[in-house]
Design a protein around this nucleic acid. Sequence first.
DNA 1: CCACCGGATGTTTACGTAAACATAACACCC
DNA 2: GGGTGTTATGTTTACGTAAACATCCGGTGG
Lengths: 351, 351
Amino acid sequence: MRAGARADRRVQRASMADVARLAGVSSQTVSRVSNGYSGVTEETRRQVLAAMKELGYRPNSAARALKRGEFRTIGVITFSLATTGNVRTLEAIATSAAQEGYAVTLLPVAVPTQDEVRGAFSRLGELAVDAVIVIMEVHLLDAATVSLPPGVQVVVADSDAGDRYSVVDTDQAGGTRAAVRHLLDLGHRTVWHLAGPEESFAAQRRADAWRATLTDADRTPPPLVRGDWSAESGYRAGLRLAEEADCTAVFAANDQMALGLLRALHERGRKVPEDVSVIGFDDIPEAGSFLPPLTTVHQDFAEVGRRCVEGVLRQMREDVTEPGTTLVPTRLVLRGSTAPPPARLRAGGAG
Amino acid sequence: MRAGARADRRVQRASMADVARLAGVSSQTVSRVSNGYSGVTEETRRQVLAAMKELGYRPNSAARALKRGEFRTIGVITFSLATTGNVRTLEAIATSAAQEGYAVTLLPVAVPTQDEVRGAFSRLGELAVDAVIVIMEVHLLDAATVSLPPGVQVVVADSDAGDRYSVVDTDQAGGTRAAVRHLLDLGHRTVWHLAGPEESFAAQRRADAWRATLTDADRTPPPLVRGDWSAESGYRAGLRLAEEADCTAVFAANDQMALGLLRALHERGRKVPEDVSVIGFDDIPEAGSFLPPLTTVHQDFAEVGRRCVEGVLRQMREDVTEPGTTLVPTRLVLRGSTAPPPARLRAGGAG
DNA sequence: CCACCGGATGTTTACGTAAACATAACACCC
DNA sequence: GGGTGTTATGTTTACGTAAACATCCGGTGG
């Protein structure tokens, strides 16, 4: 019975041999037509195509992969699709890959522990992929790569380790600098920072750049406030920041936290942007509809995804790893959440 | 040269034969160990495992798929990952599939036209998938399925057509009813509806349920206002609704539009929830951080994804299509955006 | 006129795995 | 003690494709 069911399921697909028989040619000729080789008479080609159509022939990708030694598939390892950035990057990867004739296989990692990541990588070993793109902090990856089947190329998005891997990333430092400078140019004495979680490389990078930009401008960085990317954590941080009388400008490490921040400031009666300026990072589609509309750093996730695919395919073709980091530029989007500080707290004023 | 590079890339992987040779057994015994069959001495098994480890052996999934006639992969067709719902569903699908030992291949459809969808399906034919889950309006799918290779099972999320396909969907009607009733129970005379785009089945369903709930309660449904799911469209709609003096309650078809709506009402000086109550749909993670925190209908996307996988795997095993719709219940999440209407506009009051 | 060329097509083989079948070794029972 | 299972292992074969090699054929040039 069970065997019967399985057999039923296999009744399906016509093979090259079937097509060949119907078209009255050899299966090799069918193969040639199927792969668009030259050296087939137009007449023969037509007959073969007709036979294919009649039988509903589809090449068997398993056999093809076995023969060719490649799957035309890219594996994407990512920890959760909860963050906008990962999702948008993934989407771009899938689109770019499709254009190149590659499929994308998703490898979710439940919890971002080394064990889990290692597990994902080892499953990968027996998975039908030719290359891997990792959207993840690289430190989780370190112990894992050893188990990567040799010959499988890797590109990492959203991480550091450009010394060992090919990395594609948003220009975190550039975006941060633009954001902080914008606030300083408006006359704020300094800028507070609502950072992402410690274990995030992107968060780290943004925090570093924030500090550096202030130092370069001879300003004293206020104590760093930490969130976990969520709006809720932004809200909690905002409640604290609202108590800081001299806090007139906050750079939030992402838009979600900025949203929570806006809510907290509103509840505490601190007007944005009159009393406090807020700037975010990401430019999620909703950012323009916040109260007030959020000034933020736009990330070009599509470009990140595109370059990941491009890089990994190039590495495959040339059979080399290309350590190094590719930076994708950002763009500051000015909306309604930033303004000069109240006159008495302006830079160069009293104090 | 090119051939050389390809050969290099193939140097890699050890095959069963290699392992067998090293372990001093037949390759069939290696196969048995690899697939966890009984009938292998503990002693032999150890030797084989040792040989596998030494050679870094990984089963070749192409050969395995060719032999077994299945890929252990599920294809997911979706139009854009721009909406929270699709993404969350996809994530749940990937997770559930992984638990069942299945991988997930992503098939992005650039633009939701029939041609594009048909293209995706025909690519699917030669793709390494055993079954397909479609997250998409089904009317786009209609002309497409014909080209599905026979034997490939389909489950559709977020659509109708339960008569032809196995469909898993959120209980749109139930969620809507709960939302509208909640507002009526608070004393609102009627509830306005900010609907999603016409071509969306979910939007249609929510609009129908909204109308039906009002009618059942002997209320007159106000004219329907349409958006396109985006916060921006919610804002534009909000500007119009703010002019309607007797509009005290709005049910928005998703949280993003509710966000734009909140902004518009705020700008026009209509206080939420004192003057106008707003309720959303989805319960995106940020909803609790809106101004004010948004009362909304929580969708259990994880459950939708889980049931999609479960359903498609069952269909595969039993080799049957199971038309019908599975509804996943919703939950009303009460936050700060709903309240009784101003006294003069209360139901049962003057008017 | 025949050897040779090159284009169109056919035949053989191998990719790595696992089912089906074959064999070998050993225990058990009457 | 020879038939009869039972268990562990080996051998053969086929999955569908495509590279490599073989063949066939009409045309061309010496």
